[in-house]
């Protein structure tokens, strides 16, 4: 169990006009599974490599349980990083790959064999020890890479895009495996991903990094319900941003006055709500009459664009609720109070 603390971590590559990572600060509780989320090139992998000791930060600090680790060599940090493309050593068998970390620590051969067998069973590949990595599928290679990292019982585990190379059905299998192993072993885990869905399904908490800076660090659902700013909301698929003014629990704009949740900020700002929180029909409060601009059928969902005055509202609804609804038709919608949020 290790509490990871990242303090003003900054990395500027030589010759680069601005930092790849700018003063990132995060407190990652012991045993937590945190996602560093952001588009490619936002500084996520840079952060991981600095924690792993594979890259020196320009400034800032990383501490494990209050002790700075920046001067420790990579092999002495108790951190294992699993790279995105697995990097299984091609000339070793699967068992030798998994046992690599123990061999480097000069653990006796019989113990290595026993722990490798145990680990391979844990990742559900008990019979593949004698194979070469090239004989495995992508999902199997991923699991071998995970076993190879976990066998040394690291204090902190770093995963680079752990689900990105996998098919849809394997992603959920892998996600469950990572979650189960991480929980059982109590390893503080940080993973990076560019995929907000991957972050949401796997992580306890998500740190959204845009352009080298931390935007928001919170449990995944907060990013949907209570985004910190418009950039965060947009990254998570938000479309509805209506400028106006928030006073005394009501939002005044070119829309009719809307009742806000108690914790909404006051003053001028932008009203936002998720497309999927829009409800069809009238309600005691926050009911709007809108006109359908167009609709897009997405299989399990239908996306509607609605106009109310000059405002365009996006709504995502179950297809059977809006069947037969044609562009130009008028419909009543309501926006549940708790689904509204005001941004600066």
């Amino acid at each position: 169990m290790t509490h990871v603390s990242i303090k003003s971590l900054t990395k500027t590559y030589p010759g680069a006009p601005k930092p790849a990572l700018d003063r990132l600060s995060l407190e990652i509780p012991s045993g937590d599974l945190t996602a560093l989320l952001g588009p490619s090139g936002c500084g996520k992998t840079t952060t991981m490599k600095m924690i792993a000791g594979l890259l020196d930060p320009t400034s800032g600090d990383v501490t494990f349980d209050g002790r700075s680790i920046l001067r420790d060599k990579p092999e002495k940090r108790g951190v294992v990083m699993v790279f995105q493309n697995h990097l299984l050593f091609p000339y070793m068998t699967v068992a030798d790959n998994v046992g690599f970390g123990l061999k480097m620590r000069k653990v006796a051969k019989p113990e290595i064999d026993a722990r490798v067998a145990e680990m391979l069973a844990l990742v559900q590949l008990p019979d593949l020890g004698r194979r070469r990595p090239s004989e495995l599928s992508g999902g199997q290679q991923q699991r071998v890479a995970l076993a190879r990292a976990l066998i040394v019982r690291p204090n902190v585990l770093l995963l680079d895009e752990p689900l990105s190379n996998l098919d849809a059905h394997l992603r959920f299998e892998m996600r469950d495996l990572i979650r189960a192993l991480q929980r059982d072993m109590g390893i503080t885990t940080i993973f990076v991903t560019h995929d907000q869905e991957e972050a949401v399904v796997l992580a306890d908490r998500v740190a959204l990094i845009l352009d080298g800076s931390l935007c928001q660090y919170a449990p995944a659902d907060v990013f949907y319900k209570r985004p910190a700013d418009e950039a965060v909301a947009r990254f998570f698929g938000g479309h509805n941003f209506i400028p106006g003014n928030s006073t005394a629990g009501t939002f005044h704009s070119t829309l009719p006055p809307l009742r806000l949740p108690d914790d909404a900020r006051t003053g001028s700002g932008k009203l936002t709500f998720r497309p999927e929180s829009v409800r069809i029909g009238a309600a005691p409060e926050n009911t709007l009459t809108t006109r359908v601009i167009d609709r897009i059928y997405l299989g399990t969902q239908t996306r509607l664009r609605l106009s109310s005055g000059d405002n365009v509202i996006e709504a995502v609804l179950s297809p059977d609720l809006v069947e037969g609804l044609q562009p130009g038709a008028d419909i009543e919608i309501n926006l549940p109070r708790q689904s509204l949020w005001v941004l600066e």
């Binding site: 990083m81 690599f100 970390g101």
Partner: peptide
């Protein structure tokens, strides 16, 4: 050659010399 294999070895607990012997040289 992908030098990331060396970083992976270091991260798994290999010293620079062990990395040279067990990872770089075989490759």
């Amino acid at each position: 050659y992908d030098p990331a294999f060396e970083q992976q070895a270091r991260s798994l607990g290999a010293s620079p010399l062990q990395t040279l012997w067990h990872v770089t040289l075989p490759a």
